[in-house]
Write a protein that binds this DNA or RNA. Sequence first.
DNA 1: ACCGTCGCCATTTTT
DNA 2: TGGCGACGGT
Length: 745
Amino acid sequence: MNFDKLNAAQKEAALSIDGPLIIFAGAGTGKTRALTYRIANLIEKGIHPSAILGVTFTNKAANEMKSRVIELAGEYGQSVWISTFHSFCAAFLRIEAKNIALTPDFLIYDYADQINLIKDCIRELDIDEKKFKPAYFADKISRAKDALQEPESFEERSRRGDFNAAILAKIYRLYQSKLKLADALDFGDLIMQTVQALLAFPSILEKYQNKFEHILVDEYQDTNHAQYMLTKLLAAKHKRICVVGDDDQSIYSWRGADISNILDFEKDYPGAKRIKLEQNYRSTPKILNAAANVIKNNNSRITKRLWTQNDENGTVETLKANDEIDEALKVAMHILHAAQNNGNSFLDFAVFYRTNAQSRVFEDTFRRFGIPYTIVGALRFYDRAEIKTIMAYLKLIYNPNDNISFKRIINSPRRGIGKTSLQNLETLSIKKNLSMWDAIPFAKEAGITKSSVIALESFAQFIKSIIDIKDKADVLTICKRVISESGYLRELEVENTIESKERIENIKELITAIGDFLKRSPDKTLAGYLTQIALVNDVDEVQTDGGKATLMTLHLAKGLEFDNVFICGLEEGLFPIRDSSFNSKELEEERRLAYVGMTRARKNLYLCWATQRTLFGKRQYNSQSRFISEAGFKDEFAVRFFEDSLRQTKQFNNGSPKHFLKPNFYKKKTSIDYLPSDDEIIKDTVYEIVDNSPYKIGAFVKHSIFGKGKIIEKSGSGDELKLVVLFETGQWKKLLAKVAKLEML
DNA sequence: ACCGTCGCCATTTTT
DNA sequence: TGGCGACGGT
């Protein structure tokens, strides 16, 4: 094995294969390289590839790791089991189904299915829909599963006086019984039931413990309790577990990720080796410096210092705009200028924002200026109504007990089966403890009109005819039959609107996608397709080059990199988001999100904010985000924004049309009247923030009037140093350090 | 049964 | 602002 391409720390990570190992891998420090060399090294040392398990969070990461392992280790690499947590568990549950009292061909419910099922539960339990939103229950149930908690845990809480817990327990219970009836598992179930099976069946646990001599876990800071237990159980025998993560990039605690998993690893595995990867290969020193300045304001972190040998070029700049439209305009201008300087071809740019709602203005603006862009995650392909409908057909064929799918397609296309008929059928099915599909033969009893009964029966006939071929035919054949014979396509064709044409296009795209699936997948059945599809997402397919601007939320940006990055909406109340300001845990997570965003940039980083913004129909005046000043920018020192571009903008406006702009751009005269004003400010050198003050967060102080207290937050520096102090009395005060005359305790 | 309108509501992130 | 559910008219 040749380790020439590794630095010392990476090499150590690849070679330390005897016991537990934790790798703290900063952003852009080549952790995938270290991991893949580690796996290749294991294989070379004679470990059988199938005795190695690698777990990641995204398919993208899994695929990348797998292909790089194959590159290094050749054919042997094929047999290493590398997959996401969810697909690993789905595979496990199907393999072991018969041993653990589970149907092997269960469906996987996605978020939308979950919400629909919960809506049913809410209605059935007669809960005030105004007071409790489905999303509330979905969140609580998912978090419970992340923590391996059954409905009983809510009942306990309820006994202790938690008011909502009783209702939660009821919903959770009913939800589970409905899932069971539909033979479906949601995302949380995949992990939780795997853990439960391993705990309940020692022989199965032992089998897998023996099988996996080496376990590698990527993004360990994002694991929730259930995932933590899973890896812990599997690794318990050999204790040859290697986890990689970066506590500074933990941004999913709201989704159950438990940062203590990474912080406590060394307690769980005494004697574990610790390696830090700190050499960054991605960004310029300026970018790393700015990012470090931000993240060092967090308290609970394992200190590491990224450094780089990369050349000092590119910039870190701030961009101040008047409002969100102006912000988008300025970003667009910059992209256009960059394109001009690059022979009129667009470069690699990314625009990150905190909330999806912000994307709209960018889309509009980019479209207006003819800037090619892709938007990630807004409306996923598989979330589109027509795709969901076709998928619902496929799911129902696969599993007729799937009520959610049944209800989605029973009257789509219209078959004259209305609300009341459906209601009656559902009530009957609940009474008989049957799925709605199984209740069809009893439709007459349910008081359903004759015409509806006939429609139901002919629908059932159609579905049955396809069920008959579902194991023999491949998924493409089945899907084509569904599309043509269900009448759904015909309905769209008759509609003949712009919208319906678009839907038809999307359906064609689905056919193409299924065709691709057939080409690459060994399992070409409906079952194989549905399993795969439930566990993919849009980020898996993001391409970060090719001269397009990529629009996405900061959360989705993790793991990606771009030459040029705009982080937009850096305003107090938006980023960090409103509620986080007074909760240091949440604020720290926001800060990590900022850190993740900043460290995506290779060459140029722009921190953008707008003094006013229309949010939810209201005009808001925001102040610059603390993350901008933490990054090393001060309002007072601000210089003109894009000094260089200003000149170019003037030339641009006076000059001749550029061919890369769409024609309609020139018709809209107003749109090119843009000139940056003098107060558009920028400072392109990041300075190191030196904090010499004795006021550290967490320090105890005494105030002449308020008494003893603890510093919980601080901002600004020098004479401007502001502190938030929580006093013994329970009240907190914002104080200017210079004036407050605090005594240190 | 279906469609349009009204008014209310929340506004973070989703493997 | 816009997405969604309730309601009422056809």
